[in-house]
Nucleic acid binder design. Structure first.
Lengths: 141, 141
DNA sequence: CCCGACGGTATACTTTTCGACACTATGGGC
DNA sequence: GCCCATAGTGTCGAAAAGTATACCGTCGGG
């Protein structure tokens, strides 16, 4: 997913859709934003424990990008061991309708491991994909 | 953006967010879905004309993935020259709240080329990104 | 002393996504 | 004949995203 930093788009009526997706589309960003909605403030390792399989490197990177894009505020406490808090900015909170819509759709349509598949799942969708999802390889169904 | 074909996720509460983003996060998918919402049926080159800079190759690929994921229906007419129509399935239409939320947020927060920048734009956002958005390089503002 | 926690950084590498280019058969218009 | 339109396919490479591994200083607990 390309990252757009408030560059101007070649606008067609759909550009805002594309731009929004580009801002929040990093692999872990949706989850990071979601968890910050659920729990107002999180520290680095608290966030890390909520994201299965994320690496330290990637979490740092995505948090920094979200901060750079103005969605997340990062507060450093001058302590040892280090204490850093992450929370949503006003701009980040303005994404709530987006994140809720993504969550609502996913709840209704995505099969969760161990859950009984809902009727909403597309019938023809049982065939395995050509390539695995971007998750640990062993997770392939 | 990884493609998830109804594989089971290692579920944490945010998984539905991640899964939904993975399904619609291809570079052109948001725009394709958006335009199919706006205009019930589109042929291939009609869609193509609505997406600035898309290549034939990429449009075909993203349409096929959306079809494979059950969002888009493809109707072939046995004619020459070829006539193919694309429209949203019921499952595709169920994405409307997601696409509308993405569009609404983008409308309020993303600067469009030629438009006066709104106050909502983050102040610090003027600095160029480390790397360009995934679009033709010369398109950088 | 060793281990784990904290919140990272650095580097190299792998995987994934996307784009560029050439090509396809048919028919209509010039 | 050439060009354009239709809706693609095939191949390769570039760019981007993401991962793996090692390392860092300080402190507290065992």
């Amino acid at each position: 997913m390309p990252r757009i930093h408030h560059v101007s788009l070649d606008c067609s009526p759909g550009c805002p859709v594309e731009a929004t997706l580009a801002l929040i589309g990093g692999k872990w960003k949706g989850l990071v934003l979601y968890h910050l909605f659920e729990e107002e403030v999180l520290r680095f390792n608290e966030m890390r424990r909520r994201l299965p399989n994320v690496t330290q490197r990637m979490l740092t990177s995505q948090l920094r990008e979200l901060e750079a894009d103005g969605f997340v505020l990062r507060k450093i406490y001058p302590e040892i061991p280090p204490k850093v808090e992450y929370r949503l900015s006003a701009r980040g909170r303005s994404l709530e309708p987006v994140i809720r819509a993504l969550k609502a759709w996913g709840d209704a349509h995505v099969v969760v491991k161990g859950a009984v598949a809902k009727g909403a799942v597309a019938k023809g969708a049982g065939t395995p994909p050509k390539r695995s999802a971007h998750s640990p390889k062993r997770a392939v169904a």
